[in-house]
Amino acid sequence: MAKADRDELIEGEIPALRRYAYALTRDHEAADDLVQDCLERALSRWHLHRGADALRPWLFTILRNIFINAYHAGRRRGASVPLEEAPAPAVSPGQEGALDVKDVMAALDRLPEDYRSLILLVGVEEFSYSEAADILAIPSGTVMSRLARARRKLRELLEGEAIPFLRRVK
């Protein structure tokens, strides 16, 4: 493939990579650093990549692995906040029609990274279930049940069902 074609293909994925990186890091600068690391790695390892159809999952896989290895440990804002200090969601059951946008992101932040990524990769990045399984390195047979669990957790956080377990006992 010509270099110019390759660049254009990669370039086309940058907005989506930034979106995923931002959802993971919740920090604009860190997200762009993450994307930059991802692109540098992709360019230097292009010879390991075969075929154009799998480019998008490949880039997302690289980005997520960098995040897990380098960023997840200490750089993500709020990563080490004790559970009882995590802010309680503001939406109560029955208010589902008026969900505050920020609350979904805030609730998402409180999920384990693999749940977060699965929700993002399927719901926002619109990967197929099997592509999402590949990116997350999980058996494709388990994607649907994981997705169901992830979305249930998110919903419970938003609807306040899980609050009694998260609040400090007084």
Binding site: L99, V101, K102, V104, L158
Partner: peptide, 9 residues
């Protein structure tokens, strides 16, 4: 919730 997330991002 998925829609809101997509909208937020």
């Amino acid at each position: 919730q998925v829609e809101v997330l997509r909208e937020q991002l």
